[in-house]
């Protein structure tokens, strides 16, 4: 078949409907949130003193950081889903969540005696954090990768990593409601590590799944 013949066949298929990529990604976010909520409530559920904890700034800050990470990662996913990116400076948005975390760390260093730093960093449930965030994020990661297959990512590994970061931010937002360790020391260490696991998994999977 020569190229001219191929064009005839493609042109006859012009009317095939093409749902919007943006809407599909939004739908994926909804589905991923539902999956994360089901896994979270089945395996963990919120901590018993949730109502009291909700009045403390350290507890609330965890949600601010993880939700900010999820939203900024979503922008990256939407950007990497297309062959041409609209603006390169959107990458800088990814620095917002780490910047808030860094500010919280500095506050913690300034207000808490150095003798307590170690205990706050180690926390009480780091292993649960390291297993549960990837566990809650696995389903959402699969959903985001599946949605990106409808896109045309020219950097599949990077796009997969962005999916992992988004899934990690989403999973950590749910997990934070269960987690008893509210210190920025703990969040910076164990949340980051858990989210990094999902990001690496996304990057590795993206190289195979996101080919087109």
């Amino acid at each position: 078949m020569n190229t001219h013949d191929l064009i005839k066949a493609i042109a006859r298929d012009a009317a095939a409907p093409r749902p919007s990529l943006g809407l599909l990604l939004l739908g994926a976010c909804g589905l991923a949130s539902v999956i994360a909520a089901i896994v979270f409530s089945t395996l963990l559920g919120p901590r018993p003193d949730f109502a009291q904890a909700a009045h403390t700034s350290r507890f609330l800050l965890k949600f601010v950081i993880t939700a900010t990470l999820a939203v900024t990662a979503l922008f990256q996913v939407a950007e990497l889903a297309r062959p041409v990116s609209r603006s390169s400076h959107r990458v800088a948005l990814l620095a917002i969540a780490p910047a808030i975390l860094l500010a919280a760390l500095l506050m913690e260093i300034a207000t808490i005696p150095a003798a307590e730093w170690g205990a706050r960093l180690v926390g009480t449930n780091s292993l649960i954090c390291l297993t549960m965030i990837p566990l809650i994020g696995m389903g959402p990661l699969a959903v985001f990768l599946a949605a990106l297959r409808y896109g045309a990512p020219t950097r599949p590994g990077l796009a997969g990593a962005a999916c992992g970061l988004l899934a990690g931010g989403l999973a950590a937002t749910f997990y934070a409601a269960h987690c008893f360790d509210d210190s920025p020391f703990f969040v910076a260490t164990w949340y980051s590590l858990a989210i990094a696991i999902l990001t690496l998994a996304g990057a590795a999977a993206g190289r195979f799944i996101l080919r087109w």
Partner: peptide
């Protein structure tokens, strides 16, 4: 490339020039 342009045409934003998108693919 022609097949990809056709099957991925929803990844082109209507308010953008089409040739940069074609060349990226």
């Amino acid at each position: 490339t022609l097949l990809a342009i056709h099957l991925k045409r929803h990844t082109w934003r209507q308010d953008e020039a089409v040739m940069p998108w074609v060349y990226a693919i």
